[in-house]
Every structure is written in structure tokens, then in C-alpha cells.
Amino acid sequence: MLKWHPALTLSVLLFAIFLLAIPGNLLVGWVICTSTQALTPSDVYLFHLTIADGLMALTLPFFAISQVLGWIFGDFMCKLLTLIMEANFYTSIIFLACISVDRYRVIVHASENRRARHRRCSRVLCVAVWAVGWALALPALFSDVTQLDSDSSFLICTETFDIGSSTMWRLATRGFRHIFGFLVPLVVMVACYSITITRLLHTRGFQKHRAMRVITAVVIAFLLCWTPYHITMVVDTLLRAELLTFDCTFRRAVNNALRTTNSLALLHSCINPFLYAFVGEKFRKKLKTLLQRKRRREQSSVFRVSRSTSQTSEGARTVL
């Protein structure tokens, strides 16, 4: 019988995130794609955000299995899945920043809104975000399958820099992750949303309170999910660079904290649909309209079938 231990707990958590993230992001993507209205830049960014979060979630079952059984999928899948995870990690967070910029533009500079031009720019920006995200993720190609330690046959998929100084490579790649995957998007979000909330405070009506609640929830969720992971990674980097003194117990605690905070960060991929879509009144109206339209089509189809059956029965009675 499999003994219950922290690795199994993390495995179950990753599977749970996968099961929550896939339906949520698919539903948001479906609502946006089937919308009969012209998409706003925020809609476009949200659609691409669902793609990034969905692709990231698709890799989770592999990493969930590896928590318990070790990495059993080979070197190629190690590089590929790590690359997909890293690329969509960057694109997801950058699209969050893009949404904050667009909401700032719409609310603070509403009179300067040139919709057609902004729609074209949003599509070009999406291409740029994907290109930047995949470019920043290229160090994931250095990932390889290796033993957890010399005394264990347990295999893990991890970064192994075998050219030049591994310490310098690790400092550089993690520096990029902290700067472009957390600090820059966070500064953009806080700056844009702070100005947006200031403008909303000078407006009247119930809608401003709803918008402020959503904005506050977005920033808090981002900080709660990602801050522990980045703090833990900074500590891990300092340990690997031997800038901090440590013993085996502390090293083991940091490794466990990395796995736990990474799972917490991935939880953000299933929170995003709820924060950006389900909480939004416009999205709920679109979803309600689509469901009503689908229900009417089903009722119409049932009515046509029953009517056809009735006419057939009536014709049979006439013949008899």
C-alpha cells in the first residue's frame, strides 16, 4: 500500500489544480470566442490568458506523477514540458499586466478611446507577448533528468547547466524570472490599478464599488499566490550560490518549501477565470445569453422532432 506523505499530497494538489483550471479556462475561452459583439482589448488579453493558463495546466499531471514515482517520462518530455510550463508562466503574468493597462486606459482615459486602433494594437501586442514569453523560457532547454542525490535512484526533472559556470547561469535565469515574471508585472499592475482606483473614488454609482472589489481581489490573489514562491526561490538561489550558510535540515526545508509554494503559484491558473470572468458582470451576462440561446435551440430541436413524429403518426392513421 502506498504510504501517505508530503509528495503524495503535492501530487493530489497538482491534479486538483488541473481539474479546476481546464474546465474554467475552457468555459471562459468558449464565451469569448462565441461572443457576437466586437471584442475589447481586455477580452483579447483574457482569451490569450486562458490559453496560457490552460497550456500550463496540461503539464500538471506529468509533474504530479513525478512527485510520487519520480520522473519516468524521459529527457525529451522533461525539456518539452518544462519549456511549456516556463513559457506560459511568463505569458500568463504578462497578460495580467496587459489587462491592468487596458483597464487603466478605459477608465482613466475614456475620452481618448480609439477602439478600432486599440483592437489592432492589442492583437499585435499579443503576438509580442507570446514571442517574449517563449524567448524568456528558452533556458528551460537546459533541463534534464538526474538523480535526486547520489544515494537515491529517484529521478527528477531539473535544470542542469553543463556549460560555463552553473552558478552564473542559475543566477541569470532566476534573475530574469524574478524581474520579468514578477517584479515588472507587479509594478505595472499596482501602478495602473492604483490610478484606476483613485479615479473610481471620484465617480458615483454602485458599479465603481464592484470594479474596486474586483481590482483589489486581483492584486491580492496575485501577491498571495506568487510572492511566497519568489521569496523561497531567492533563498534557494542564495543557498546554491553559497551566499548563505546552511545545513542538511535547512536545505531539505527549502526544497519542501519550493515544491509547496510552486503548487500555490500554479493555483493562480484556476483562480484567473474566476477573478477576471465570473466576477465580471459583463462576462456573466454573455454566459447567460449563450446558455439561453443554447436552451432555445435545444427546445426548438425537440419541438421539430415531436412535430415531425406527430405528423407521421397522423399520416399513418389517415392511411389506415
Rank of each mutant, 00 (worst) to 15 (best):
Q207C: 03
A221R: 10
H209T: 11
W169H: 02
I215W: 12
R170F: 13
D247T: 10
F246A: 04
L290S: 09
R259G: 03
Y193M: 14
L223Y: 00
C192A: 15
K285R: 14
G280E: 06
I163W: 13
W169C: 00
F206I: 13
H230F: 15
I156N: 02
Y193Q: 13
K208L: 05
Y229A: 13
T261E: 09
W169N: 02
L258C: 01
A211R: 02
L239E: 03
L258R: 02
T245S: 11
D247M: 07
E281V: 12
A277Q: 09
R177H: 06
W226D: 04
E159K: 10
R177I: 04
L264G: 15
R240G: 07
M189Q: 11
A277M: 09
P185M: 00
F246K: 03
Y193K: 07
R199F: 02
A221D: 07
I220Y: 10
W169Q: 00
C192H: 10
N272W: 00
N272F: 02
R213Q: 04
H178A: 06
L224D: 01
S263V: 12
I163A: 10
R177D: 05
V187S: 03
V188A: 06
H268L: 06
T237G: 08
N272D: 08
R204C: 06
K286A: 05
D162E: 14
S269M: 13
S194D: 12
L266D: 12
C192Y: 10
C248E: 05
N272E: 03
T160E: 14
F154M: 11
A191P: 02
L266C: 11
A221T: 14
F246D: 00
L291D: 11
S269Y: 07
L238E: 07
A265I: 04
I156W: 02
F222K: 06
V187T: 02
T203K: 06
Q292L: 15
L200P: 03
A191G: 08
M212Q: 10
K285G: 03
L266K: 09
F250W: 12
V234E: 01
M233W: 05
T232Q: 12
I220T: 11
R259P: 00
L200G: 05
R284V: 10
L238G: 12
C157P: 07
R177Y: 06
T167E: 15
G181Y: 12
R199K: 05
P273F: 02
I163E: 11
S263N: 08
H268S: 08
E242A: 07
V279E: 14
I197A: 13
L266H: 15
C192T: 12
T289P: 00
F182S: 07
C225D: 04
F154Q: 08
A277L: 10
R252V: 06
L244D: 04
L264D: 08
F246H: 09
Y229R: 11
L223W: 00
L186A: 13
T227A: 13
L244M: 06
A241C: 15
I195A: 15
L186N: 09
S269P: 05
A191Q: 09
F283T: 01
S166K: 12
